[in-house]
Design a binder for these strands. Structure first.
Length: 803
DNA sequence: GAATAAATTGTTTTT
DNA sequence: CAATTTATTC
């Protein structure tokens, strides 16, 4: 119980409030996860069986984080259900879905499967996909499901409107096809669980009794379906604890409704409301900037985050020539931090869209900076992986038409679109699934010669199903790869082909890990894991690497140094939000900016490019409007070396920058390097901040030490990653030469090795130096690695050491 | 009819 | 610029 000393009064009050509804308004960095973790520990300590506790999050990353922290706090913590909405609902549905007329082995359709099925339905309704773009229709249907509106209800709602009625027809057909395929889409997972609870009282009571203590993280992101679900779950005991921050609501486009959190007190009379407004994470400068941005939003509850933390250095603005220069700048800043003793995991690069990661990645690869990319091109969305998974899904669920369709001609079996259409027509006529139609292919007239391979395919899947009953998932995948000679079909001699093969190997590794780690090793469970986790797990948890991710993915995380790249109009805020007629979209962008700023503990960089390649032309964007909201006293422009612009290296120049430096000096201990290196004070400051032994931010007055905490305890474990990217991918991109002729003010020291020497690289191991050529102020080093071939590095960035 | 080559089109964000 | 849709060849 002494651990309660580590909480501030508000935090403690929240952690000790165990019975009855509880709403925690938790500002960014206010120790929210800490409170939840302690609260669970407290519940268990007072005798609550962990079996009765459920904690629901939105992302897998958040779930993993919380699970680890709960387990670390209390030994019984592992018995607590900590999972995403989707994972929790899937688990419930596996047991109970037969009450809704589905079978327990249902498939989960991802976005691509969903789109494909919707396309078919549009066609089947004789609608043109130009008048009814599948993506749009998908979005409309998704929106209805998020509002718990069934096809029949939607039909009624839009009666009279020609266009919407047609969409309603598609919705109805789509839902029918899903059910016939025994499949659920992502939205159904929530929708059907809510429906289950609404329609079946005894099921609802069963789970209400099971989950007597319900906690929901990021409550501001719940949509209506999730809201209803939570109401059902917590309906009896009312031991519901929700945590959220309306300023961090960034999923409006997915149906999230801020009103859910704002009306909590009405929904749950007698609810205790606690506000956590003290931030323990960021410097006050960063917090001031974040507050200055978010204050422009109309739709928010009045509050202001405050901190006792030191002021810290100014926010650094870098104006890049283009996106390559931008990436290079980031790489260079990280490399410098590393040389001063920081770890790669201290750094994160955040961007608005996944596409932006590329330019940064390229520069990281050339610079030899290890990185992990979170939810970029997702592993399970690769063509070859989806193909294999479609085989598995077809085997696991014979009714799954979409998966059958995907692989019937992969590899080529001579069954083209015409033959497929005939089989589908036959299936429709006789009310068969696609797979049943295949088995009776010989009855389909004018299928002719194609009947044989069709039937063969059906028989092959049966064989696999029989095999699967006796063997592991791993063995099954190996069998399919072998039988179909799939790997040969994807090997086209290009680097992409090699990459695909590598991805398949990784899938095998994933299956192997699944067998070792999961207690239920069935094919169905494997597919479920895969469907609900977008990224492949990182096998090297301890690898030290910089993080690359979208602003959305970054929510809930924190880093010592954050780079927000692409801080430009039409990128962030996105062009869509600028064009939108309603202000609410722009408000959401603003909240996203607030989320981004508040990820940073010590140093925040905002970078933008003068010109940037977008589609096929070059765009010149103004700096983001959000930059205008940040007080001038909080920011400073830096040049490509990270030095404050227009400030002499002595730091003695007057004006805003000079003041900032002196202020800085008051807050920070003396610089050990002082006098030994003629560096710019900002840079010196930043280096020391980044390289200090303890990352804790010293409070100006004695505060709550625990919560300010040592960062090693607070630091989020990078839950998932994309190993392939970390490995850097094959060939090609490595030979890229960094942006031409940068002249360093202080020239990089020549490498302490020469051609012929062996050097060690952080990723590729030991290799032989072939050539060293001066490149601007740096040196380009060509190294031959036994494993990875020939690579080029910039000496100043890549940490090559003599071996 | 199927496989391949050419043309076109579109980019938020996640489960 | 990549991924999907449409035109052309086999």
């Amino acid at each position: 119980m002494n651990y309660l000393d580590e909480l501030n009064p508000a935090q403690r009050e929240a952690a000790m409030h165990l019975e009855g509804p509880l709403l925690i308004f938790a500002g960014a960095g206010s120790g929210k996860t800490r409170v939840l973790t302690y609260r669970v520990a407290r519940l268990i300590e007072t005798g609550v069986d962990p079996y009765h506790i459920i904690a629901i999050t939105f992302t897998n990353k958040a779930a993993r984080e919380m699970r680890e922290r709960i387990s670390a706090k209390t030994s019984l913590g592992e018995q607590v259900w900590v999972s995403t909405f989707h994972a929790a609902c899937t688990r419930i549905l596996r047991r109970e879905i037969e009450y809704l007329g589905y079978k327990t082995g249902f498939s989960i359709y991802d976005t691509a499967d969903t789109l494909r099925l919707i396309k078919e339905c549009i066609k089947e309704q004789n609608l043109s996909d130009t008048n009814y773009p599948p993506r749009y229709v998908a979005q409309v249907i998704s929106a209805q499901k998020n509002e718990l509106i069934s096809p029949a209800e939607y039909e009624r709602m839009v009666a009279g409107s020609f266009r919407e009625s047609n969409i309603a027809d598609v919705y109805a057909l789509y839902q029918k096809r899903l059910k016939n395929s025994n499949a659920l889409d992502f939205d159904d997972i929530i929708f059907k669980t809510a429906e289950l609870f609404a329609q079946h009282e005894h099921i609802r009571e069963k789970y209400q009794n099971r989950f007597r203590y319900v906690m929901v993280d990021e409550y501001q992101d719940t949509n209506h379906a999730q809201y209803e679900l939570v109401r059902h779950l917590s309906g009896y005991a009312q031991n519901l604890c929700v945590v959220g921050d309306d300023d961090q609501s960034i999923y409006g486009w997915r149906g999230a409704d801020i009103k859910n959190i704002l009306r909590f007190e009405k929904d749950y009379p007698g609810a205790k409301v606690i506000k956590l407004e003290q931030n323990y994470r960021s410097t006050s400068t960063i917090l001031d900037a974040a507050n200055a941005v978010i204050i422009h939003n109309e739709e928010r509850t009045a509050k202001r985050l405050w901190t006792e933390n030191a002021r810290g250095g100014p926010i650094r603005i870098y104006t890049a020539r283009d996106e390559r220069d931008e990436g290079y700048f980031v790489a260079q800043m990280i490399a410098r931090g590393i040389r001063e003793g920081a770890r790669y995991s201290d750094f994160a690069v955040l961007y608005r869209t996944n596409a932006q990661s590329r330019a940064v990645e390229d520069q990281f690869v050339t610079g030899g900076i290890p990185y992990r990319i979170f939810s970029g091109v997702r592993f399970y969305e690769h063509m070859e992986i989806k193909d294999m998974l479609a085989y598995l899904k077809a085997i696991n669920n014979p009714a799954d038409d979409i998966s059958h369709l995907r692989v019937i001609n992969v590899p080529k079996r001579g069954i083209g679109s015409a033959s497929i259409a005939k089989i589908q027509a036959f299936a429709a006529e006789n009310e068969l699934t696609f797979s049943q139609a295949l088995a009776r292919a010989s009855e389909i007239h004018d299928l002719g010669k194609k009947a044989a391979p069709a039937k063969q395919f059906a028989e092959y899947l049966d064989e696999c199903a029989a095999f699967s009953a006796e063997n592991s998932v791993l063995a099954l995948i190996e069998k399919i790869l072998h039988d179909t000679d799939y790997i040969r079909t994807i090997q086209d001699g290009t680097p992409e082909g090699a990459e695909r093969e590598q991805n398949l190997k990784e899938l095998l590794a994933k299956a192997r890990a699944f067998e070792n780690e999961s207690d239920d090793t069935s094919l169905g469970k494997f597919l479920e894991d895969v469907a609900l986790v977008a990224d492949v797990d990182n096998y090297d948890e301890n690898a030290d690497a910089a993080a690359l991710m979208t602003l959305h993915s970054a929510k809930g995380l924190e880093f010592n140094v954050v780079f927000m790249v692409g801080f430009e109009e039409y990128i962030f805020p996105t062009s869509r939000s600028i064009d939108a007629q309603t202000p609410s979209e722009m408000e959401e962008e603003r909240r996203l900016c607030y989320v981004g700023f508040t990820r940073a503990r010590r140093i925040l960089y905002l970078t933008h490019a003068i010109s940037r390649r977008r589609f096929d032309h070059i765009a010149r964007n103004k700096t983001s409007r959000f930059l205008d909201d940040v007080p001038a006293t909080c920011i400073t422009s830096v040049n490509m070396y990270g030095e404050a612009r227009n400030v002499k290296a002595s730091g003695a120049s007057p004006g805003m920058h000079g003041r900032a430096v002196r202020r800085q000096a008051d807050d920070q201990p003396p610089n050990p390097h002082k006098g030994t290196r003629p560096l710019d004070p900002f840079r010196e400051t930043s280096l020391r901040e980044v390289s200090g032994k303890s990352w804790s931010i010293a409070p100006r007055e004695s505060g709550h030490r625990g919560a300010a905490g040592s960062a090693s305890a607070e630091k989020p474990r990078e839950a998932r990653s994309f190993k392939k990217s970390f490995e850097g991918g094959a060939g090609g991109t490595f030979s890229k030469v960094p942006p031409a002729k940068k002249t360093f003010s202080t020239k990089v020291a020549p490498p302490d090795f020469s051609a012929g020497d062996n050097v060690k690289h952080i990723k590729y191991g030991v290799g032989k130096v072939l050539e060293i050529t001066p490149a601007g102020a740096d040196y380009e080093v060509t190294v031959q690695f036994p494993g990875a071939g020939q690579k080029k590095f910039m000496s100043g960035l890549a940490r090559l050491v003599r071996a």
